[in-house]
Design a protein around this nucleic acid. Sequence first.
DNA 1: CGAAATATTTAGCCAAAGCTAAAAATATAT
DNA 2: ATATATTTTTAGCTTTGGCTAAATATTTCG
Lengths: 220, 220
Amino acid sequence: MYTVAEENYIKSIYHLQRHQKSVHTNDLAAELNTRAASATDMIKKLEAKGLLKYEKYYGCSLTKTGKKLALNIIRRHRLWEFFLSEKLGFGWEEVHAVAEQLEHVQSDLLTDKLDVYLGFPLFDPHGDPIPDTLGNMAAREQTPLSLWTSQAPAEVCGVGSQDESFLEMLSLKQLEIGCRLTVLRHFNFDKTVELQLATGSSFTISEMLAKNIFVKPVEV
Amino acid sequence: MYTVAEENYIKSIYHLQRHQKSVHTNDLAAELNTRAASATDMIKKLEAKGLLKYEKYYGCSLTKTGKKLALNIIRRHRLWEFFLSEKLGFGWEEVHAVAEQLEHVQSDLLTDKLDVYLGFPLFDPHGDPIPDTLGNMAAREQTPLSLWTSQAPAEVCGVGSQDESFLEMLSLKQLEIGCRLTVLRHFNFDKTVELQLATGSSFTISEMLAKNIFVKPVEV
DNA sequence: CGAAATATTTAGCCAAAGCTAAAAATATAT
DNA sequence: ATATATTTTTAGCTTTGGCTAAATATTTCG
């Protein structure tokens, strides 16, 4: 069994590892809203437990065991998100905070029974894929709006951040998951994107926002 | 917000308070598998937070605030037990351990939405009543087998302990929740109880066991 | 009643996980 | 390439929750 703190470190290291191959102390501390010194301490502890490899002043990266644990935590998190949204009627922007707590309930039996009960969902309410028992998950068939060049109508199917101010902005601009839109044009100068909603209204969004909204072709 | 340790102390004090009016340090320590010294420390902390009143060498008892918290924790615990049993198909003897973890997820929104989702259940799978938002709960319409004198068939609807060895014994003797039985007689000498199952088999159980099995009249 | 047994508290430690401040290593920049 | 800036680590302290051993209250019993 692992402590909540350990699990949170493992999860953060896993997420950071998608971008940088080796995870640096400062980045990890920033991700967890803590200090570099604390991160160093925990990294050492996790290395002792065989969950990651660590080279002083260079960084760390998860071992096979560490990755497996990370995927299990992510699995729990996303299954709970799905449950909260689908079964309890939580707004998709409310689920994250509660799932942060639920993900630390350690019982594989619970996780697997929940998975069965939910019908083995492949994606959580944010469009992120849910790992199965072995850690395998579907690839997200998603393109950030910033890269979507097709004229064809697109459906919002994922977001790149759980930040509250970001999610608030989305719902303000009526860019919820499942909503349909068309990209009118990309402005090369400042990378802003002009788009039109199914309701007919059109407006321009920043590059930052466009990078964090994922879309896919509208299904027939 | 309260820590997991604090919540567990509050819950234990609440349970002990049903029997003794004032809860003694040693009993509390025993209940929580810890030592008297640790209990003293925590009692002081909880008093400082206004959750209980404490008199040195005498004991402690929950304040109004403390009781409210206790009932909220119990509410969460029993709702999760119901969920695990009803929705996920856990055996009723498996739910307790997992609910011990789930009960510490702190989100009133979650608790209330879960309650709605489950259809405002009144009793958990062990037959214990589930408090509502205000802390009110149904009285358990249950009699311990040791006091059941009626000739009429009875239905097992509750248990007086979550102890593993006890629950194991129950399932071994096929005395699950919901099962039907008739009490053949009470032996005055050693307070054992002879009973007959719906299957026809009959046997005698100890006073200890009889006190911990709750029954109610079979519903028509 | 007073001595022995029992219960409770105090004092002093430990481990986990965090922090600050200072030291050491690495990276950058003129 | 050396000086400066940044990053990382170390050292030492804090809080939470638990422990043991010793001290102090309380209860019980001869």
